[in-house]
Amino acid sequence: MDDIHKIEQLAAASWPSYIQKNMGQWLLRANFGVTKRANSVWTSADTPEGDFQQEAEHFYKSLGLPVCFHISNASPKGLDAVLAGSGYEKADECFQMTALGWDIMSHTDDNSRFTYKWEEEPSSVWIDHFIQLEEFSPERHQGYTNIFERMPSCKTFFTMYDQESLAAVGTASVIDGYGGLSNIVVAKEHRGKGAGTQVIRALTEWAISNGAKHMFLQVLKENLAAVSLYEKIGFSPISEHHYRIKR
């Protein structure tokens, strides 16, 4: 198995949906509409037998959700063109980025101005803080709860403070020696103070202490500030993915 397929499998495992159903080696995922990743067909394997479009469309329409496919560099060749030809619109181009854990540590310095709180399972307050910082609707709370409950058992939900002010949150999980980073959000009033770098450093240090050698994350390609930060501290793109959606 090449690195791209490996990372795609780990990324799917680190962000599990409330409903997951096999379609051959692909995975139908649904989570009440909260996040595209959790409400899309994972396609980073050989094409299943039969009419996969019909099966996927029946699955999502029965749940009242738009039909969505996750298309990556590990997806079957030609799949993206087939879906485009069937009227599926392209959305959310992303990078999958990886780094060695110790490279991240060597590219960052510990910033003692911040204090931390760690939770093995996210409290309702942690989820509220995450939703608040992302400026999402409070109605998404249960959808995120579903995902976080099903994440791998080796996980942490991190809150960072500048004095007593909420500065940032983030999540990490470890599977098979790989640490996955997600939900990294810095409060607007604390941006430009090194908070983003410090969150990644702290979560990477936690992941290393729990057996991770490699780190991975996903980021929107249009989020140039985040991409630049990740590259500065040791990450590089290993693959790209996007979504194809039919409403």
Rank of each mutant, 00 (worst) to 15 (best):
M1A: 04
D2V: 06
D2I: 04
D3R: 14
I7P: 03
L10C: 13
P16R: 11
Y18K: 13
I19A: 04
M23I: 15
G24H: 13
W26R: 15
L27M: 14
V34I: 14
T35E: 12
K36A: 05
R37V: 00
V41T: 08
W42T: 01
T43D: 12
P48L: 01
P48A: 00
P48E: 01
E49H: 07
D51I: 11
F52G: 05
F52Y: 14
Q53N: 11
E55G: 15
E57F: 09
E57C: 06
L63R: 14
P66C: 15
C68E: 15
H70L: 10
S72Y: 13
A74E: 13
D80Q: 04
D80R: 03
D80L: 02
L83C: 04
E93Q: 14
C94K: 12
I104C: 13
M105K: 07
M105Y: 03
S106M: 14
N111P: 01
R113S: 14
K117H: 07
E119A: 08
E121N: 10
P122D: 00
W126A: 00
I127G: 02
I127S: 02
H129L: 03
I131W: 01
L133P: 09
L133V: 09
E134Q: 15
E135S: 06
S137M: 08
P138F: 01
Q142P: 03
G143D: 02
G143W: 01
Y144T: 05
P152M: 03
C154R: 14
T156Q: 12
F157C: 08
F157K: 12
F157N: 12
F158P: 08
M160T: 02
Y161I: 00
D162P: 00
Q163Y: 10
E164S: 01
L166P: 03
A168D: 04
T171L: 11
N183T: 15
A187N: 14
A187H: 06
K188Y: 11
E189G: 08
H190P: 06
R191A: 13
G194K: 03
Q198F: 12
I200T: 15
I200F: 08
A207T: 07
A207P: 09
I208T: 10
I208P: 08
G211H: 07
A212F: 05
H214N: 09
M215H: 05
L217H: 10
K221C: 10
N223H: 11
A225S: 10
A226W: 06
A226N: 08
V227G: 01
Y230P: 06
E231T: 03
I233E: 05
F235Q: 05
P237H: 01
S239F: 00
S239R: 12
I245R: 00
K246Q: 07
K246N: 09
